[in-house]
Design a protein around this nucleic acid. Structure first.
Lengths: 250, 250
DNA sequence: GGCCGTTTAAAACAATTGTTTGAATCGCGG
DNA sequence: CCGCGATTCAAACAATTGTTTTAAACGGCC
């Protein structure tokens, strides 16, 4: 089984050694019209993976959407998983450009909180061409693969830690770490639910109300106000301690 | 293709007419030892469907777990989807018995809120034999099938409306409907996140903290206190209006 | 015991999956 | 124009899928 002269990089795993290609157009649009086969595959694979998941998506559907032969994925990415990895990597790069993480506002931590909430919601509810990205991330979140753990570490953790810092500024009292983490998770949970449970929300909330009062603006203000009420005035700690098992039991 | 004398209910779709069976044991354990083939299939199918989803699960794996021939699912349930429907129906019945929806506490709406939160969290984080049920519900939530919409209507909507009523009692001011709905969704979102994003949480929160401060008790108190702070004292409306685009802009 | 409907078993079926193959095509350097 | 590597194509491959088929075993009833 001597890997003869057919495929650059060997017939087993690798993509073609893209350093030296026949055509000089390095990787992207061809001047004629349609993009490169490789990029056409990448662009077509994203929505399909988002719609059906990694296992559910078929390379034939992807290749049909890309108008490309089924053997192309094997040639350019080694196998289906190689294509998937590349799609995930592309998402990670694109989102940071599309919705940059907001800077801290040293003057008013309330603004910082609002910005974080709004950025989170914007990323969740984006309905433009990056809508499938969130869908795919949600899929990874529910059925994590080895790809996802590193993504959480590199992508979610920095935002989470900044959120914790903002909440620390907002709560004058010196709350222990786990209380701040709980508050941060409350923020993230509220934001994510409007994406994750969007199907549930659409059934529970009448359509007219939904369009009028459940846009990014309204929801950002709502979630921010909830968290401000929970953090400001020192009520965060007092309310928490009031809820002892003696007072509330059944 | 005259459906001869082989299978009760026809070879195309139906399950065997279970009204008249050969054995008198009506449907369940056989006195000898192992349960009925049908129930053995039902019990084995739940975890497998939860682990791999409807498409991902294979009837062969299910039948192997149930120690049953592959043809049994076709005989007892018509096809794979028939088995799935029956599993979903079983979940719906079992959960209402396992975690009954708490009654309203007319005296103190704060107690009612706490009970609802705790019930929600208990259902989410249940790690006992009903753990796969939540897992399967989550799967349906993220990739809804025709089965799920009716479940939202019959199962989630009543709880949601009661939650709205409790929140209405908690907010003295007469808030519009969409504000109460937003608050209710904030409750649900915070509760669900600890299940949905459990993978994320496990990466973000150190393991020691997680076991010490992120159990059902602590989280119930935390979420309840957040929502009480957001609703009590009339701050719900005032905070919301303070957040106008003029004050917080970027 | 012998019959008969109910249930189970092993095997086979058609369809679809990801992947590979070997030839045809493209595009440039000689 | 020819050659040659990079790329694309149609076809086939082996594996797995849900489902069906055919025959055998079970168990009560005469």
């Amino acid at each position: 089984m001597a890997e003869s002269t057919k495929q650059p990089g060997g017939t087993s795993r690798n993509a073609p050694s893209n350093g030296a290609k026949g055509r000089l157009i390095s990787r992207g649009d061809s001047p004629a019209g349609q993009p490169d086969t490789r990029t056409r595959l990448l662009e077509a694979a994203g929505p399909v993976f988002a719609a059906h998941g990694f296992d559910g998506a078929t390379v034939r559907e992807i290749c049909a959407a890309a108008e490309v032969n089924v053997a192309a994925v094997g040639y350019h990415f080694g196998d289906k998983l190689g294509l998937y990895r590349e799609v995930i990597r592309g998402i990670r790069d694109h989102r940071e450009r599309r919705f940059p993480t907001p800077n801290n506002d040293a003057a008013d931590p309330r603004r910082s909180l609002y910005r974080i909430v709004r950025t989170l919601l914007s990323r969740m509810l984006a309905c433009d061409e990056s809508g499938w990205e969130t869908q795919l991330l949600m899929r990874e979140m529910n059925h994590p693969t080895p790809v996802f753990e590193s993504m959480v570490r590199e992508f979610f953790r920095p935002q989470f830690e900044r959120l914790v810092e903002v909440l620390r500024e907002l709560t004058q009292a010196d709350l222990p770490a786990h209380r701040l983490q709980q508050l941060a998770l409350s923020v993230v949970g509220q934001c994510l639910y409007y994406r994750m449970g969007s199907g549930v929300v659409q059934v529970l909330i009448p359509h007219s109300e939904l369009r009028a009062h459940f846009d990014i603006d309204s929801l950002s203000r709502h979630i921010t106000s909830v968290m401000l009420a929970a953090t400001e005035g020192g009520t965060a700690s007092s309310q928490y301690d009031q809820l002892d098992p003696d007072q509330i039991n059944w």
